[in-house]
């Protein structure tokens, strides 16, 4: 009975992968997700996407197991211990969203030495033996200024909301924004606060700096902070500037309300939490013997005035606009990197 099932599954997988590729032998492989944090809507969406896509992959017999593990404290030491446990548990691949780009390198190297495929995404690691599915965060900052330049050719005062201090994603997006301001010199950053990618923190920080600022024409953000900024402007009785959003459902909903009420126009950009599912398929492909380049860049998800409604409709309440990857999407992404 079981043997038959496995055989059917193997045949199905082989068919799914197409005749040209090597024989699919990942049906017995175990993949683990090592995740450092779960306490915000983006991470919740990421885990949900992972659960949805990998459950199907397991049911389809493509892999044997794809469990997700999240550390409690968002600390590199804890995650290193978690990775060591995964090595002992005999996983064939570890998909990793890392607490630190460097602090986990030791544990990652141990995993590689044990013959385990390590694919890092979003929070990538620098250890050369691991694969990296990174987002061009610099560009994510720079395009915000390019958009502003299109909307306000004469320029204006910009408030920057940064992310969590000390995290490299924050430094990268910030560098992109700085480069954007240099390129579009008609814009001036009049204030900068850390919003920690959280509405409450952003609202608090923006409310504190607003009284000291001249008129603010635009707000550049890193995602998860746009709605909080809007609340702070509203509370201060100031005109709402052009606030770049970050694909969160509450941000998109607010944008939609403003759009309907007064034609408010902006754009929204962030990484789709489903990038975790791309990392899963990449790990599966590597296990399958496919040659995958060590560094891949994934596009970010941009929402414009025109496709706002469509994106809002597919984003669940409290979630983040998302794109989940199928095996075919992953294959295309790999092929385009080669």
């Amino acid at each position: 009975m079981t043997g038959k099932k496995t055989l059917v599954a193997a045949v199905a997988v082989t068919l799914a992968l197409g005749a040209g590729t090597a024989l699919a032998d990942t049906a017995a492989k175990k993949i683990a997700l090592s995740n450092n944090y779960a306490g915000n809507s983006w991470r919740q969406a990421m885990l949900k996407s992972w659960d949805k896509v990998t459950k199907k992959a397991v049911a389809d017999g493509i892999v044997a197991e794809a469990s997700a593990f999240t550390t409690a404290e968002n600390q590199a030491t804890e995650q290193a211990a978690q990775i060591q446990n995964m090595i002992l548990q005999g996983y064939d691949a570890i998909v990793l969203n890392a607490a630190s780009p460097t602090a986990l390198n030791g544990a990652v190297k141990q995993a590689c030495d044990a013959g385990i495929v390590v694919v890092s995404f979003d929070g990538v690691v620098t250890e050369p033996c691991a694969w990296r599915i990174a987002v061009d965060f610099k560009k994510m900052g720079a395009i915000q200024l390019d958009y502003l330049a299109k909307r306000m050719p004469k320029g204006g005062n910009v408030l920057e909301i940064r992310g969590l201090a000390g995290v490299f994603v924050d430094d990268e997006i910030h560098a992109g924004i700085e480069a954007g301001v240099k390129k579009n010199a008609q814009f001036k950053i009049v204030g900068s606060v850390h919003g920690d990618w959280a509405q409450e923190v952003a609202q608090k920080a923006v409310a504190g700096i607003l009284p000291s600022l001249p008129q603010v024409d635009a707000v550049v953000t890193q995602g998860g902070d746009g709605y909080g900024a809007a609340q702070a402007f509203k509370a201060a009785g100031r005109p709402i500037p052009l606030i770049i959003m970050g694909n969160r459902q509450d941000e998109l909903t607010w944008w939609k309300e403003q759009k309907d009420a007064n034609g408010y126009e902006t754009m929204s950009v962030s990484i789709a939490p489903g990038v975790g599912t791309l990392a899963f398929w990449v790990a599966q492909q590597i296990l399958d013997g496919v040659d995958v380049p060590k560094d891949m860049i994934v596009p970010f998800l941009q929402i414009d005035q025109g496709n706002l409604e469509a994106n809002l409709a597919t984003t669940e309440a409290g979630g983040v606009a998302n794109v989940e990857y199928s095996l075919d999407d992953a294959k295309k992404a790999i092929a385009s990197t080669k």
Binding site: G39, S41, Q44, D196, Q199, E200, V201, K204, Y227
Partner: peptide
């Protein structure tokens, strides 16, 4: 009160 003030509840509301 915080959820009312900031336009909804969120998991990270209490972090600070």
């Amino acid at each position: 009160l915080l959820a009312g003030f900031s336009g909804g509840s969120s998991l990270s509301a209490g972090e600070t």
